[in-house]
């Protein structure tokens, strides 16, 4: 996984609450069996005026001029600023893959849906929760300041604004550790194989019905 330490980037605003993962990456693109290639279809139904299909070349498709991320001033943005409950709905990790593939390294919101929030950390994308007031102020700054960039520092847990203001944010210690070091979580968990086996041995005694094998009769 790509490590996340410091990152400075352009901020793009998506001013709506409850952005669901169906909107982030519509279902037809979930038919892929790969982890990459979702970037051109990020927010597909909002971003384009026509209907998109998987494995289609998106370069000639008509863009929706009313969609904020299509504005020239937000091209190349890597930090998405949005409202509460971002990533709600389906568990599709394709939503995070699409954001990452489109160049987003961070999403800032007053709150995230749980599964999406988890999925971010597995893919080198940092979800930052800020209080609604701070998010409101950032929306205003982005609106009035072309080229508005933020400096993110995960080890220090700070966001620095162009004016030099520092905003601190919280993050779970273990998630931070994995993200800062780009660690393979499976490898970490397998270090505890002995404990997993010991647990299984005990549970097989206590509750053997949990270990009935699933196989064709």
């Amino acid at each position: 996984m790509q490590a996340f330490t410091q990152h400075q980037g352009l901020v793009a605003p998506l001013d709506r609450a409850n952005v669901d993962t169906d909107a982030i990456i519509p279902k037809q693109f979930l038919k892929s069996i790969h982890r990459s290639g979702f970037g051109p279809n990020l927010f597909d139904e909002w971003r384009y005026l026509d209907h998109g299909e998987p494995e289609q070349d998106c370069s000639g498709r008509p863009l929706n001029p009313a969609f904020v991320l299509n504005q020239p001033r937000y091209q190349g943005a890597s930090i998405l600023l949005t409202r509460n409950n971002f990533g709600c709905g389906s568990s599709r990790e394709h939503a995070v893959w699409a954001l990452a593939d489109a160049g987003f390294r961070c999403v800032i919101a007053p709150g995230f849906a749980d599964i999406f929030f988890n999925n971010c950390f597995k893919n080198g994308v940092l979800p930052i929760v800020l209080d609604a007031g701070s998010v409101d102020r950032l929306f205003h700054k982005v609106e009035v300041t072309p080229g508005y960039r933020l400096l993110l520092d995960l080890p220090a847990q700070t966001i620095t604004t162009p004016a030099g203001e520092s905003i601190t944010f919280g993050v779970d210690a273990f998630r931070k550790h994995c993200l800062v070091n780009g660690l393979d979580e499976i490898g970490l968990s397998l270090q505890y194989s002995g404990e997993i086996r010991a647990y299984e041995a005990r549970r097989r005694q206590e509750a053997p019905w949990l270990f009935v094998d699933l196989e064709s009769a």
Binding site: R35, S91, E93, N119, K122, E185, S189, L190, I196
Partner: peptide, 17 residues
Amino acid sequence: GVGTSEVEHVMATQCLV
């Protein structure tokens, strides 16, 4: 529900972090 990275984690370890 879990994401695909967690699907892989459960396949590999029978556990979830």
